[in-house]
């Protein structure tokens, strides 16, 4: 009945069997909290984000933090070696994680990371794309949809302009990036289902 945590936001996939469920959860929480704070600090630097109402800032971050982390930590997924490096630095093969109970989400995240990495985006392009991921007017609980929509459109225009300037002969890159948004939604939904299973367990 050994329990494993297959999320790379943990320091390790192995759980000390002597720890209580509460202790395991607290340890996990301490592991991902710094990353979440970094997402918030990133959001605060998006021009216009702080002008949104505070409830809408919270709603966007609540809904989008997982997707931002998927983009930011795509490099943890080594597609060539089929391994994942956890935040604590430990590396696991896909087969090992599968044996520990990882399901379809793992494969889907590998696919996503591979496609995103293959686009070869610069740090600036990746940052702007991440801002577009976060500022989505169709997240649940948004009060002032028009304001979020206006900021979203500004960010998308800036992303298109940057991609067009940097990749004049690769016009499909911008379209491919926008198509990553529904992929991220799908991963987010799968992740929420896994969290439910974890909490129930």
């Amino acid at each position: 009945n050994r329990m494993h945590l297959v999320c790379p936001m943990n320091t390790s996939a192995h759980v000390d069997p002597h720890k209580s469920g509460h202790e395991v959860w607290e340890e996990f929480s301490q592991s991902f909290t710094p990353a979440v704070r970094e997402v918030v600090e990133f959001a605060k630097k998006i021009p216009g984000f702080r002008d949104l109402s505070q409830p809408d800032q919270v709603s966007l971050l609540k809904a989008g933090t997982f997707e931002v982390l998927v983009v930011r930590f795509a490099s943890l997924f080594d597609v060539r070696d089929r391994t994942i490096t956890f935040l604590g630095g430990k590396k696991y093969s896909v087969d090992t994680l599968r044996a520990m109970g990882a399901g379809d989400l793992l494969n889907s995240m590998f696919d996503f990371s591979e496609k995103l990495t293959n686009l070869g985006l610069s740090e600036e392009e990746m940052s702007l794309f991440t801002a577009v991921v976060l500022v989505s007017a169709d997240r649940s609980g948004i009060e002032n949809v028009n304001s979020v929509e206006a900021l979203q459109e500004t960010l998308i225009r800036a992303l298109r302009s940057l991609i067009t300037k940097n990749h004049p002969n690769e016009s499909a890159i911008f379209t491919k990036l926008l198509l990553k948004l529904p992929d991220l939604r799908s991963l987010n939904n799968m992740h929420s289902e896994q969290l439910l299973a974890f909490k129930v367990h």
Binding site: S29, T33, V36, R37, V40, E41, K44, Q54, Q57, V58, L61, K62, A63, T65, S140, H191, S192, L195, L196, K199
Partner: peptide
């Protein structure tokens, strides 16, 4: 389970970070 962020304690972390309060999350 319509609000996984709240279940994870994310909302608490997000609110504190947004308000510039980077103290450790209190139980």
């Amino acid at each position: 389970f319509s609000d996984p962020a709240s279940n994870l304690g994310l909302e608490d972390i997000i609110r504190k970070a947004l308000m510039g309060n980077l103290e450790e999350r209190q139980e």
